[in-house]
Deep mutational scan, measured.
Amino acid sequence: SIVTKIISIVQERQNMDDGAPVKTRDIADAAGLSIYQVRLYLEQLHDVGVLEKVNAGKGVPGLWRLL
């Protein structure tokens, strides 16, 4: 499923980069989806406690990390 793919992308990127959070844009590119589509999935995963959003604010790139 797309959700499983997104989780594995975040996991893979974090492992490659010493646990650093992953940008929404990088996840979207790797999943082959638009940034808006991916954001909806990321928000859902956040709501159920799978991911945390590391930063927030208007015009700030979203950074995500697995919990």
Rank of each mutant, 00 (worst) to 15 (best):
S1F: 10
S1G: 11
S1E: 12
I2Y: 07
I2G: 02
I2D: 04
I2F: 07
I2P: 03
I2M: 13
I2L: 09
I2T: 06
V3Q: 09
V3L: 14
V3D: 02
V3G: 04
V3Y: 15
T4P: 05
T4Q: 14
T4V: 10
T4N: 13
T4L: 13
T4D: 12
T4F: 12
K5D: 04
K5F: 09
K5G: 04
K5T: 09
K5W: 08
I6L: 10
I6H: 00
I6W: 04
I6M: 03
I6G: 00
I6T: 00
I6E: 02
I7Q: 03
I7L: 11
I7D: 00
I7A: 03
S8M: 11
S8Q: 13
S8T: 10
S8V: 06
I9Y: 13
I9N: 00
I9T: 03
V10N: 00
V10L: 15
V10I: 15
Q11E: 08
Q11A: 12
Q11D: 04
Q11H: 10
Q11M: 11
Q11P: 00
Q11L: 11
E12I: 09
E12G: 06
E12L: 09
E12S: 09
E12D: 09
E12A: 10
E12M: 12
R13H: 07
R13D: 01
R13Y: 11
R13M: 12
R13A: 08
Q14E: 05
Q14R: 02
Q14M: 13
Q14S: 09
N15V: 09
N15R: 12
N15T: 11
N15G: 10
N15D: 09
N15I: 12
M16Y: 09
M16E: 13
M16D: 07
D17Y: 15
D17P: 06
D17V: 12
D17C: 15
D17K: 14
D18R: 12
D18E: 11
D18I: 07
D18P: 11
G19D: 07
G19W: 05
G19C: 08
G19V: 03
G19S: 06
G19P: 05
G19T: 04
A20H: 10
A20V: 07
A20W: 05
P21C: 07
P21Q: 03
P21R: 02
P21G: 15
V22R: 00
V22E: 01
V22L: 05
K23T: 12
K23H: 09
K23D: 09
K23F: 05
K23M: 09
K23I: 03
T24M: 03
T24D: 13
T24Y: 01
T24A: 05
R25T: 11
R25E: 14
R25C: 08
R25V: 11
R25W: 07
R25N: 09
R25A: 13
R25Y: 06
R25P: 04
D26T: 09
I27T: 01
I27Q: 08
I27C: 01
I27E: 00
I27S: 02
A28H: 15
A28Y: 02
A28V: 03
A28K: 01
A28N: 01
D29C: 09
D29E: 14
A30V: 05
A30K: 07
A30D: 09
A31V: 14
A31F: 03
G32H: 07
G32F: 03
L33G: 01
L33F: 04
L33A: 02
L33C: 04
S34Q: 06
S34M: 04
S34R: 06
S34N: 08
S34V: 08
S34K: 06
S34F: 12
S34I: 04
I35N: 15
I35S: 05
I35V: 12
Y36T: 14
Y36D: 13
Y36R: 14
Y36Q: 13
Y36A: 14
Q37H: 09
Q37A: 11
Q37P: 01
Q37D: 09
V38G: 02
V38L: 05
V38N: 00
V38Y: 00
V38I: 09
R39T: 15
R39A: 11
R39L: 15
R39C: 11
R39F: 08
L40V: 13
L40C: 10
L40T: 08
L40I: 14
L40R: 13
L40Q: 11
Y41L: 12
Y41F: 09
Y41C: 04
L42I: 02
L42V: 02
L42D: 00
E43R: 06
E43A: 06
Q44A: 14
Q44K: 13
Q44L: 14
Q44D: 07
Q44P: 02
Q44R: 13
Q44V: 10
L45K: 02
L45I: 02
L45P: 01
L45S: 00
H46A: 15
H46M: 10
H46R: 15
H46N: 07
H46P: 02
H46L: 11
D47E: 14
D47V: 12
D47H: 14
D47L: 14
D47Y: 11
D47W: 08
V48G: 08
V48I: 15
V48A: 15
V48D: 13
V48S: 12
V48P: 00
G49R: 04
G49A: 02
G49K: 04
G49C: 03
G49Q: 04
V50L: 11
V50I: 15
V50P: 03
L51E: 02
L51F: 04
L51H: 00
L51N: 02
E52G: 07
E52R: 04
E52K: 05
E52T: 06
E52D: 04
K53Y: 09
K53D: 08
K53W: 08
K53F: 06
K53N: 15
V54M: 05
V54G: 01
V54Y: 05
V54K: 02
N55K: 09
N55P: 11
N55M: 07
N55R: 08
N55Q: 10
N55L: 06
N55W: 09
N55I: 07
N55A: 10
A56V: 12
A56K: 07
A56G: 12
G57C: 07
G57Y: 06
G57T: 07
G57H: 08
G57I: 06
G57V: 06
G57N: 07
K58C: 09
K58E: 14
K58F: 09
K58D: 15
K58H: 11
K58R: 09
K58A: 13
K58N: 14
K58Y: 07
G59H: 07
G59R: 07
G59N: 10
V60W: 12
V60Y: 12
V60E: 15
V60A: 13
P61H: 14
P61G: 14
P61L: 11
P61N: 14
P61D: 15
P61I: 10
P61F: 11
P61W: 12
G62R: 08
G62Q: 14
G62A: 15
L63E: 14
L63G: 15
L63C: 08
W64M: 00
W64G: 00
W64P: 06
W64S: 00
W64K: 00
R65S: 08
R65C: 05
R65E: 03
R65T: 07
R65V: 08
R65K: 09
R65H: 05
L66K: 03
L66I: 11
L67S: 14
L67I: 15
L67E: 05
L67F: 09
L67C: 13
L67G: 11
